[in-house]
Design a protein around this nucleic acid. Structure first.
Lengths: 108, 108
DNA sequence: CCGACATTGACACGCTCGTGTTAAGGTGCT
DNA sequence: AGCACCTTAACACGAGCGTGTCAATGTCGG
């Protein structure tokens, strides 16, 4: 078999098999599948799992924080809206920010 | 008084006074204070509150998602680490996962 | 100086998250 | 064929989030 099964991957990454399945359902770490339906964890997934654990430990992140970060990358609409919110939160005026966005669009 | 008190701000933004205090404790919308200790909501804060409600409604965001987004802006160390995690995850995996979710829905 | 509203702090409650466990069945090496 | 491990689905449960409410006290305008 090419890639580790869920139990083997769990042993090598200090996650439980349960959590590996959970992370897959959230779309964070998605292994390939064998013909029989077994999860096949390869090097990329193992690295993701180790990095993920490190992020939680070092920065106290929730898993849901990473899910949100993933959404930010995948949904430009969302990223724009969030940026807009922060524009109103910094001392830059919202209207000015909108204006400059329009200017950028015109310039493009 | 220059700025709205918490009750007045609540009426105009469709948040409860309780939630306005909560959002302040999270560092998301922080009004100035009067000499007597009353919160003074001005235009900037009112706009932030309305935009915040809109983000929740339109994108289904949690408040904690916005708190995390704020951390991302303020902590370059954190942003770098999160970017690093995504570097190990090419978006092919995401597409495959979406496809299988779709198949599951069709099969149901 | 009184009444309306503010302040902080605490208790409460339903909901979701992260995690384990168990059940009922499938895969695959030897 | 058997044994170890996998699959999904379900139930369980403590912890934390979002929110309301109540109590004790402070501020302010008329």
């Amino acid at each position: 078999m090419d890639g580790l099964k869920v139990g083997e991957a769990a042993e090598r990454t200090a996650w439980s098999p349960r959590m590996l399945r959970y992370l897959e359902r959230l779309g964070l770490v998605v292994p390939a599948r064998t013909a029989g339906g077994y999860r096949a964890y390869r090097l990329r997934e193992l690295n993701q799992l180790r990095t993920l654990a490190e992020l939680r430990r070092r920065f106290g992140l929730d898993i849901s924080d990473l899910v949100f970060a993933a959404r930010l990358r995948r949904e430009p609409e969302l990223r724009k809206a969030v940026d807009g919110w922060f524009a109103g939160a910094d001392d830059l005026a919202w209207v000015e920010w909108e204006q400059r966005k329009h200017e950028r669009l015109l310039a493009a």
